[in-house]
Design a protein around this nucleic acid. Structure first.
Length: 116
DNA sequence: GAGTTGACGACTT
DNA sequence: CAAGTCGCCAACT
C-alpha cells in the first residue's frame, strides 16, 4: 500500500478533530488539554496546526470551541471573519470579551476528565 | 534541500 | 510578580 496514503488517516490530526467534535455545545477546551489527551502534551502547537489545516480536511471542525490555556481566542484570526469565532461562541451561550472567554474555567471541558 | 514560521505551553531570569 | 526564552513537530517558502 502507499505509505503516504492520500486518505489522510493521520492519527494525530484525526484524533484532534474527533476530540474537538466531542466538545459539547456551550463548552470550550484548550490545545494543551487535547494534546495531553492524545499523549503529546508537549506538542500543543501541533493541535493548533491540525485545526489550521482542518479547512482542507473532509469536514468542518468546531475550532471555535478550542482556545488557548488563557481562554483567549488566539485562533480567531484564522477564521473567515474578523470575529467569527466570537460570534459562534456567543451563539452557544459563551460570553466573550476582548477576545477572551469570560468565566473560562466555568466553561472549560477537559477530555482527560470528561471522556476518561 | 534547508531555513523559518506557527490556533501553545512551561520554565527561567 | 512580570516578561522573556526555549522546546515540540510538522508544514510552508
Amino acid at each position: 500500500m502507499n505509505p503516504k496514503s492520500s486518505t489522510s488517516n493521520d492519527n494525530f490530526f484525526e484524533k484532534v478533530y474527533e476530540v474537538t467534535l466531542l466538545v459539547p455545545k456551550g463548552r470550550v477546551t484548550t490545545y494543551g488539554a487535547i494534546a495531553r489527551y492524545l499523549g503529546a502534551a508537549q506538542s500543543a502547537r501541533m493541535v493548533g496546526w491540525a485545526l489550521n489545516v482542518c479547512n482542507t480536511y473532509r469536514q468542518w471542525v468546531p475550532a471555535h470551541r478550542v482556545v488557548n490555556r488563557a481562554g483567549q481566542l488566539t485562533g480567531k484570526i484564522h477564521f473567515p471573519g474578523s470575529n467569527t469565532m466570537q460570534e459562534l461562541l456567543e451563539s452557544e451561550g459563551i460570553r466573550v470579551e476582548d477576545g477572551a472567554v469570560v468565566n473560562f474555567e466555568n466553561h472549560f471541558w477537559d477530555p482527560n476528565i470528561e471522556l476518561q
